[in-house]
Amino acid sequence: MISLRDLTKTFPGGVRALDGIDLTIGDGEFFALLGPSGCGKTTLLRTIAGLETPTTGTIAINTTDVTTRQPGERDVAMVFQDYAIFPHMSVADNIAYPLRIKKIAKAERLAKAREVATRLSLGDLLERRPSQLSGGQQQRVALARAIACHPTAFLFDEPLSNLDARLRLEARTFLKRLQRELAVTTVFVTHDQAEALALADRIAVMDHGRMIQVGTPAEIFQRPATPFVASFIGSTPMNLLPGKVTGGALHVAGAVLPAGALPDGSEILYGMRPEYADLALDEREDGFPGTVAVLENLGTATLVTLEARDRLIQVLVPEGDEPPIGSRAWAVPRQRRALLYADDTLVG
């Protein structure tokens, strides 16, 4: 278990990279830190590792306060984005390195390295030099080195981002299965929302050093707490349309929709995922009108961009249902899938 209390980190020069972080990560949990570049994910991970000292706040690992402990005394293992494999050591020596520092006898630590390497299908590469490995193999060597010393927590900083798209998907599945088997608390940094959704038990979405929302992938995907989270999560960006309640109905971008319990006069932001809308070619009062401007083929579906008066609206249609470019169309939001935000908070 990792508990962070009121963690703040201000770098010399005044950059506030972490701003009042409160978080508890459970035993064996696969926890993802997600957010745009520069939001403080790496800083948070490094602070947990002890590579950065927090300006205020405390860090506890398994109920022991480790805030002032050296990195080597925290019993955590980190995998860096560049893997940090020592180029002058063989794969076996790299994997056994933490055990060597712990003064474990040579035969024993090499046996352990062999065992872990075999598990990660590196068994045949033990005598190789890192320069003779492919990117995916290097990534697994870095993982193996983290696993070999049995830490209480793994800290991963974008370990998949140097792999090509295909390998990345494979490595993702592999990583998730491995984490399940080992059941070691894992904190995983990524700026790829799909990766976070696919891997994590829980996700924390960060922005400007703050946690905006913490929840399971389903919660984050279905009920994003703010328009920021809403626009960050999802493989196609969410449509966010301003609207107003008048006469008991919600008027958004040329459509009239039921207002629910919203009082007259309230200004809201209407969020609709392209996946959660249908395209109609005849006029609909509950649809956003526009002209078909762009068609993007995504394989099993096509992303249609409608040009309305002052904005663009995107809808996903099944393959084969694409409307002709230039035709008039209406994007009809599906029932109960819409997200309504007032003052940056979810209201319906």
Partner: peptide
């Protein structure tokens, strides 16, 4: 010397002489 190499050694618990021996001098 990539900082991540030194930090990996530090996380493993390596002292400064060990960091020099295992990471810095070979590089």
């Amino acid at each position: 010397v990539p900082p991540s190499h030194l930090e990996t050694a530090r996380l493993a618990g390596a002292s400064v002489p060990q960091q020099l021996r295992d990471v810095v001098f070979p590089l």
